[in-house]
Amino acid sequence: MKLTGTYRCPAPRARVYAALIDPVVLQRCIEGAEQLVRTAGDEYDVRMRIGIGAVKGVFSGTVRLADMQAPEAFTLHVEGKGAPGFVSGSARIRLDDAEPGTAITCDADGQVGGVLAAVGSRLVDAAGRRMMDRFFERLGREFDPPTTS
């Protein structure tokens, strides 16, 4: 499964980069991430609850940041396993100045295994895209101006 997407974020590149490698922000942006605990320098244990329709599963695994070139690019490696199977993949994330804000390009390559692959192959791409879209949508909201109430 290969996914590519380009997103825009209404903030300068350095701030977006900082947010993207901040575990607190990552946890907020990864839908279903219940836990993100640093285990080594750039490695985190993660627990995610993923639900697509009636299909729900809890995955536990690791998130690792690599090849970091602040504030331009880094690679995100994700591995997780759960009852429905396993997921693994990596995404190269590139940030470019795009006035106003930042353009983010994400090239992801992922694999699913187990029951998910055997019965859900037709949905994996669409589900992966949805998760990617949601991630960057949430990231964008991190930079929304604070609302006054």
């Binding site: 692959a117 055997a118 019965v119």
Partner: peptide, 14 residues
């Protein structure tokens, strides 16, 4: 099978 050796025709759905 996909390039990772995952079986994609694992049910009558596929």
């Amino acid at each position: 099978y996909d390039e990772h050796g995952q079986l994609l025709t694992g049910e009558f759905m596929d």
